[in-house]
Design a protein around this nucleic acid. Structure first.
Lengths: 349, 349
DNA sequence: TCAAATAATTGGATCGTTCCAAATTTGTCA
DNA sequence: TGACAAATTTGGAACGATCCAATTATTTGA
């Protein structure tokens, strides 16, 4: 089993050429004669040679490692799983591989993970920072000239690129849509209040209410963990109010699904007795029943875009921070009672 | 930005010792004097040194790279996301890092990914093989003496360890439970028929029906994609039968959720009008409404166990294949009408 | 046919670390 | 204090690839 490692020298010897030639073949140089190349390739296959990127990487300190790191704060949330898949797609086809780690919202874990990635010589990092991450946590990377793209969450003061979605605008559109359907008491459910994303979305909610001349009731804003379970808890609280809301915009799709679950537990039918709008447009949003009306962020597309941005910076050799706000759009499905249903219902009155 | 790299030699020079001593400090050798160690550590911090694992790894060809690879066939399925999280936990705390890739059920992609991982010198691989993977695809790894642990799916003829769940037993328990509740027409919904997992679970279904003297009706076995959308399609087909089933065991939780969605679209209440049992026990299973009765596989625990098994083999230095069948247990929740509900309902008659 | 140009090949030196055997310092005890 | 053991430290030689400048083989053109 643990046989001797086959190296370029072995190949060279077996093929009757020098190791330099073998190296040239490996990197697809046009300098080598076609016949020689073929001969070398045959030997490579015969001996079962595997390229040692570590060694190669050592010499070409200028060039990069062909590894990009991606760390997310919650892989069990399908939003991030899809994001990772999107990143993997473009990264893979650019000849890179992905180092993926999950921090579970722990900054300590995040620190360890990033340190470890640096030791392995990643040539770039895509980071969805854990809650409480500070600019200082990225100092090492930035000082080392390693491009970083922050996704989903921004870090104040960090001089790195970021790709976040239009949280404010998306939430505003969602609330306006509900108001347009005739809802007056619209709740904002889920999410941790100490995150930038939460506050951006909340602001969108407030601004939209102001736009349509509806009052903002603080008790209609119920924070919770941004998970399915959190959604159940949040709607529970919202339904216990003296004056119940008739509709809700949710921090994300996971919360929205939880809200639907919680509504059913109260014998309320989401989409009919209560309007629910999510945020993210996770794949399940379209197949769920009722199909979830949600603000589409296209997590996979976001992953792809983040990866492209990162690769651009890696290739450019310099990392000037650019902040991209990716636009979102409201996808109207069944969970809020479509406009048509509403009209029909009104015409019956 | 792209400043010169700090190396052991720089540290050595600045601390007034030799590079060998610095190396000793780095690997925490007890040979070095405490005073020296402290001095060196200070300099390391001051100069912002980052360890170059690539270089280290090059020299100590005997030892391993502290990278373990994990490739899954569908990261967007939360079962696998959780599995990956479980792996990450133990791998991380053992000082390794995780190379994670997603194949999306493509053997070609899988081949590329595994090749790339080998080039990076992974010291072990956890693999949930794509459909259609053959023993030959793992030949290189095995020949190279790299331990491999197959999870979830087994590969016939491959001399690698595997950790799969008791598909047969789990499904048998599920069917028996439904039969015990008085169901006679029990469907088997979802999954691709060309996989080992499908056939093991199907066999468990058949054997259980035989055990309780129920006939097997082929039309009650409806295969589909093992996803939420697949579940919707499968229940659709099942409900279109002349003689409808009254209960269903599903290939996995994703399918089960889809089945619940499909039932609601037909104005049927899962757990009351129709009993549904899933397989996997994904986290959402407990928070969903109705909470899903399912065969608990504990994906995260499975990930942890797989990682432990792999680390054991890495440390042992030899990889003798062992096949572990991890036991499962039926978790009764609301989606099948609990035994108590059933009894109550009967007493009313 | 021969010089010049072009194509193809090649031997070290090198990347940043660990290993090894040998050298140096320090400590112990009669 | 001197001999001997133990504790520390250290200079090169690796590891497996790439790079560079230099060499050798092949064409080309007049």
């Amino acid at each position: 089993m643990g046989r001797e490692r086959v190296t370029v020298v072995d190949i060279a010897h077996a093929a009757g050429v020098s190791k330099s030639t073998v190296s040239l073949v490996l990197q697809g140089s046009p300098l080598v004669n076609d016949g020689t190349r073929a001969k070398v390739n045959v030997v490579i296959r015969e001996l079962g040679y595997v390229y040692n990127r570590g060694a190669a990487n050592l010499r070409q300190a200028n060039s990069k490692s062909k590894i990009i790191g991606i760390v997310v704060n919650d892989l069990t949330n399908s939003f991030f799983a899809e994001l990772a898949v999107g990143v993997d797609m473009v990264v893979q086809s650019a000849g890179y591989v992905q180092f993926l780690s999950n921090t579970g919202e722990s900054v300590d874990r995040q620190r360890e993970v990033i340190a470890s990635m640096r030791e392995h010589g990643i040539s770039g990092l895509i980071l969805s920072p854990a809650r409480g991450t500070e600019a200082a946590d990225l100092k090492g990377l930035v000082a080392g000239g390693i491009p970083v793209v922050n996704v989903v969450r921004q870090i104040a003061g960090a001089r790195v690129s970021s790709l976040i979605s239009d949280n404010h605008g998306g939430m505003r559109d969602a609330v306006r849509h509900l108001a347009g359907l005739g809802h007056h008491r619209i709740a904002f459910l889920g999410g941790f209040p100490d995150t930038a994303v939460f506050n951006e979305r909340l602001q969108g909610y407030r601004d939209a209410l102001a736009d349509v001349d509806l009052a903002v009731h603080d008790e209609l804003v119920v924070s919770s963990a941004p998970s399915r379970a959190g959604g159940v808890a949040a709607i529970e609280r919202a339904l216990s109010l003296r004056e119940r809301p008739t509709a809700a915009v949710c921090f994300n799709d996971a919360v929205a699904f939880g809200v639907c679950d919680g509504l059913r537990a109260h014998r309320l039918n989401p989409g009919e007795d209560f309007a629910v709008i999510g945020f993210d447009d996770v794949i399940e949003a379209q197949t769920a029943v009722p199909a979830l009306t949600t603000v589409s962020v296209d997590p996979q597309g976001m992953g792809r875009r983040a990866a492209q941005l990162l690769l651009k910076q890696i290739n450019a050799g310099k990392a000037d921070a650019e902040a991209i706000v990716s636009s979102v759009r409201l996808v109207v499905r069944q969970s809020c009672g479509s406009a048509i249903d509403k009209r029909e219902r009104l015409s019956l009155l």
